[in-house]
């Protein structure tokens, strides 16, 4: 997770570098540390660093880290020639390195020669079956080729061993959602909530999935998770506010007045008011739409 101060620092450095104020290396270090995706900027500034022999030698051993970073950014931007040069330089320095082998696999992938990339990754895995990055590349490759079922299979196999890797769980959850396999997705989101119980995004998506599955019980649970999202975000998340309204109206439709004294109407009317207030402040011209939408849910206060 990128914190707010880090983000501010990053954007400050980014604008400084863009306007020729120097500090390119600091910017690149920060990008690497935060693992953010700024491939175009990394490619531009990293390459200018690499092309200047004096600056490059000033980096010392970090030069090779920079080569790797620029190579990956170049692959992301599809400037394959640059990537090739970087990887060649790395290969010269570190022959038989697995890390460079990984980069070669990624280059093959970027060229679209799937079978060759597959072969490269497989040979890497033979040497070290616990290389998580290579496993993930293989999964990503299957997904990129459109073999979603293969990707799921590989991911499941991966998670069997590395079951504490929550990024993989998240990927699997998103794939399941895209395939409308909501029960499986719900399981993955539960796993994510377990690993980071105070991350409101997971609560929110879990609630979305439960709401989509439907049914009295799931709707009740979804509403609770929307509520927890509201609590964790301090009521700033509009999606959660809408979610509460939708859930309550869906529940009341399902129960058809069987148990009128539902205790959730309070929360729902509060959410509706909060939404109205928010719209009044930020988008007064769309308030009309909101009130009509809420009215159709019969939750307008």
């Amino acid at each position: 997770m990128v914190t707010k101060t880090e983000e501010a620092q990053l954007s400050r450095l980014e604008s400084q570098v863009d306007n020729g104020g120097g500090g390119a290396w600091d910017f690149l270090c920060l990008v690497r540390k935060l693992k953010v995706r700024r491939s175009d900027k990394v490619l531009k500034h990293g390459l200018s660093l690499l092309k200047d022999p004096r600056k490059r030698s000033a980096l010392g051993p970090d030069e090779w880290t920079l080569y790797e970073q620029v190579a990956i950014a170049a692959i992301d931007c599809h400037s394959l020639e640059v990537a090739k040069d970087c990887i060649k330089a790395l290969q010269k320095r570190f022959p038989e390195s697995k890390r460079v082998g990984r980069l070669e696999g990624m280059l093959l992938e970027a060229k679209g020669s799937w079978s060759e990339a597959e072969k490269a990754y497989s040979s890497l895995l033979e040497e070290n079956p616990f290389d998580q990055v290579v496993h993930k590349r293989k999964i990503a490759m299957a997904k990129a080729q459109g073999n979603i079922t293969v990707a799921i299979e590989l991911l499941n196999k991966y998670l069997e061993t590395f079951m504490a890797d929550h990024d993989a769980w998240r990927e699997l959850a998103e794939i399941y959602v895209s395939l409308q396999m909501y029960k499986q997705a719900a399981f993955c989101y539960e796993e994510l909530i377990l690993s980071q119980p105070t991350n409101p995004l997971y609560h929110l998506t879990y609630a979305d999935v439960l709401y989509t599955i439907g049914g009295q019980e799931n709707l009740q649970t979804a509403k609770k998770y929307y509520a927890s999202t509201i609590q964790l975000t301090g009521g700033k998340n509009r999606r959660a506010l809408f979610g509460v309204c939708l859930c309550t109206s869906a529940i009341s439709q399902l129960s058809k007045g069987r148990n009128k004294e539902d205790n959730g109407t309070e929360l729902q009317s509060l959410a509706a008011t909060a939404l109205e207030k928010d719209y009044k402040q930020r988008a007064p011209d769309k308030l009309q739409l909101l009130t009509s939408a809420l009215k159709s849910l019969r939750v307008s206060s």
């Binding site: 649970t221 609770k224 509520a227 927890s228 609590q231 301090g234 929360l267 509060l270 008011t273």
Partner: peptide
């Protein structure tokens, strides 16, 4: 989570 529902209510009440 049931506790969260009440807490969310109080959060919203403050917001409104």
């Amino acid at each position: 989570l049931p506790k969260f529902e009440q807490r969310a209510e109080s959060v919203l009440r403050k917001l409104v």
